[in-house]
Simulated scan of single mutants.
Amino acid sequence: MRGEDTVRLRPPRNAVDERAVAWWRSRLLAGTAAPVAVLAALGAFLGPARPWLLLAAGAVAALGLACTAVLPSWWFRVHRWEVTDEAVYVRTGALWQEWRIAPMSRIQTVDTVRGPLEQTFRLATVTVTTASSKGAIRIGGLDHELAADLAERLTALTRATPGDAT
């Protein structure tokens, strides 16, 4: 039975940047193009296996295009993040949703990463490392200026929070 003062976990308030949808689509297209190109090239050179290789290339291309059309918009709707004075909250996942909470006292490092595609879309990923065996918490798809401000804020908050981050 729930008491009157029970605290319920609520969804984090912030969505990733809308440009993350295009970034995710680009990543999915690149990930689809590579195996399709290999299968098509093999099909061009291996006569006896040509029909099967080209069929496989078409199937991979169709699946990749379907994923590219559907998944990024879905991810945008479910990926959420928030930073409070006490913790970093992240919710990710479409079918299997994962909620991660990192108390400020447990944060060890805060990093900002901008890969080539992220730079193209003016996005960045903030990585919050803790002593958790689950690994770091990543907030991808953030505007690069917001990510820099967030890293600065997290650094200040963790410095001001008592604890040993272990």
Score class of each variant (00 low, 15 high):
1 M>W: 04
1 M>T: 13
1 M>Y: 05
1 M>A: 15
2 R>Q: 13
2 R>N: 12
3 G>R: 12
4 E>M: 02
5 D>V: 03
5 D>F: 07
7 V>C: 06
7 V>I: 14
7 V>F: 08
8 R>P: 09
9 L>R: 15
9 L>P: 03
9 L>E: 14
9 L>C: 13
10 R>F: 15
13 R>C: 06
15 A>C: 12
16 V>Q: 02
17 D>Q: 09
17 D>T: 09
19 R>V: 03
21 V>H: 07
24 W>Q: 00
25 R>N: 06
27 R>D: 06
28 L>Q: 11
28 L>G: 06
28 L>F: 15
30 A>Q: 03
30 A>C: 01
33 A>I: 02
34 A>L: 13
34 A>T: 08
35 P>I: 12
35 P>N: 04
38 V>I: 09
40 A>S: 10
42 L>D: 02
42 L>Q: 11
43 G>M: 06
44 A>D: 00
46 L>T: 13
46 L>S: 05
47 G>I: 01
49 A>V: 12
51 P>G: 00
52 W>D: 09
52 W>Q: 07
54 L>P: 03
54 L>A: 01
55 L>H: 00
57 A>E: 01
59 A>L: 02
60 V>P: 01
60 V>G: 11
60 V>F: 06
60 V>R: 04
61 A>M: 02
62 A>G: 04
62 A>L: 13
65 L>Q: 06
65 L>H: 12
67 C>S: 00
68 T>M: 08
68 T>R: 12
70 V>Y: 07
71 L>N: 05
74 W>P: 10
75 W>Q: 09
76 F>K: 05
78 V>H: 06
78 V>G: 06
78 V>A: 00
80 R>G: 05
83 V>D: 08
84 T>W: 04
85 D>Y: 10
86 E>A: 13
87 A>L: 14
87 A>S: 04
87 A>E: 09
88 V>W: 12
88 V>Y: 07
89 Y>M: 05
90 V>S: 09
91 R>P: 11
91 R>W: 13
94 A>P: 04
95 L>M: 11
95 L>W: 13
96 W>E: 07
96 W>Y: 01
98 E>H: 10
99 W>L: 14
100 R>G: 00
100 R>D: 04
104 M>F: 03
105 S>A: 11
105 S>M: 03
106 R>A: 13
106 R>P: 01
109 T>W: 07
110 V>H: 08
113 V>D: 01
113 V>H: 15
115 G>R: 08
115 G>D: 07
116 P>R: 09
116 P>I: 10
116 P>H: 08
116 P>V: 01
118 E>F: 09
119 Q>T: 07
119 Q>G: 11
120 T>H: 12
120 T>A: 13
121 F>G: 05
124 A>W: 01
125 T>A: 09
125 T>D: 04
125 T>H: 08
126 V>F: 06
129 T>Q: 01
130 T>Q: 02
132 S>G: 14
133 S>A: 15
134 K>A: 06
134 K>M: 15
137 I>Q: 01
138 R>I: 14
138 R>F: 12
140 G>P: 02
141 G>Q: 07
142 L>P: 08
142 L>R: 06
146 L>V: 15
148 A>Y: 04
149 D>G: 05
151 A>V: 08
151 A>F: 08
151 A>K: 14
152 E>A: 15
152 E>H: 12
155 T>L: 04
156 A>F: 14
157 L>K: 15
158 T>Q: 10
160 A>N: 05
160 A>F: 10
161 T>K: 15
162 P>W: 03
